[in-house]
Simulated assay, not measured.
Amino acid sequence: MSEGFVRHGGSQDVVATFSGFEADLLRSLASQLVELLRNEAAAPRASDPLEAMLDFSGPTTEPEDPVLARLFPTAYQHDEEAAGEFRRFTEGTLRDGKARNAVLMIDMLEEAGLPPELEEDGLWIDVELDPGQANAWLRSFTDIRLALATRLGIEEGDEDYWESLPEEDPRVHVHDIYEWVGYLQETLVRALWV
């Protein structure tokens, strides 16, 4: 198992070594996040860049998918009109940013040597992140964990429940992935700021 992220020498960069399986799992999680973000379009895409910058025709209602609703919560719980206006002006940009962060993770894993199809056992790859890239990875880790927590129904303080599930319950393995991504996130924060 990966030791997580550590500071790279005396620089501000951080590095992690992943097994091929771990890197492929991260790529899969990031790919699923991108697909989810882009599957339910937040706004029509304008072909003219200036028009796209000035286009505020985004959605005004909460997404139907519970994960998207968690990633893009309603800003004003008691004012539906204000919440709709806020969503219209912000959600498209937020979706694009989240997708860009996840795509960066995928690209960096592949640039570090992760093949398009993982076939060989014993592959290890090193990923080195500058501070900007590390922040993008942190945001993606947060989004991935929110998505997993929402799908699993994880709530604060329910650790005993998850520990009591039998090993053969398929949710246990997904919960282990949720915990592992949290571990990576924690080591990345520590490497950056401690």
Rank of each mutant, 00 (worst) to 15 (best):
S2P: 07
G4M: 01
G4A: 03
G4Y: 01
F5C: 06
R7Q: 07
R7Y: 02
H8S: 14
H8L: 13
G9L: 03
S11M: 05
A16L: 00
F21M: 13
E22C: 12
A23V: 01
D24V: 00
D24P: 03
D24A: 15
L25S: 13
R27D: 08
R27V: 05
S28V: 01
L29T: 02
V34C: 06
V34L: 03
E35W: 06
L36A: 06
L36V: 04
R38W: 04
N39I: 00
E40S: 12
A42G: 15
P44L: 04
R45M: 07
A46H: 09
A46Y: 04
S47P: 00
D48N: 15
L50G: 07
E51W: 04
F56N: 06
F56K: 08
T61K: 15
E64N: 15
D65N: 12
P66Q: 02
P66T: 01
L68T: 01
A69R: 02
P73N: 01
A75V: 02
Y76A: 13
Y76T: 07
Q77V: 07
H78Q: 09
H78F: 07
D79R: 11
E80R: 15
A82F: 03
A83P: 06
E85P: 00
R87T: 04
F89H: 10
T90A: 09
T93E: 14
T93R: 15
T93N: 15
R95P: 10
R95A: 12
R95C: 12
D96N: 14
K98L: 13
A99K: 13
N101Q: 11
L104C: 11
M105V: 14
M105Y: 10
I106Q: 11
L109G: 07
E111D: 14
A112I: 06
A112Q: 09
L114P: 01
L114Q: 01
P115L: 11
P115T: 10
P116S: 11
E117T: 08
D121I: 06
G122E: 07
D126K: 14
L129G: 10
L129N: 10
Q133A: 15
A134W: 07
A134P: 13
W137F: 15
W137P: 05
L138N: 02
D143A: 15
I144C: 09
R145F: 04
A147S: 14
A147C: 04
A149W: 03
L152F: 02
E155M: 08
G157H: 02
E159A: 07
D160N: 05
D160E: 12
D160S: 08
D160F: 03
W162L: 03
S164M: 01
D169T: 03
R171D: 06
R171H: 06
V172P: 02
V174I: 14
H175G: 05
D176Q: 12
D176L: 11
I177W: 08
Y178F: 14
V181I: 09
G182D: 04
Y183D: 09
Y183S: 09
E186S: 12
T187Y: 00
T187N: 04
L188N: 01
L188S: 02
V189K: 12
V189I: 11
V189G: 04
L192P: 04
L192K: 04
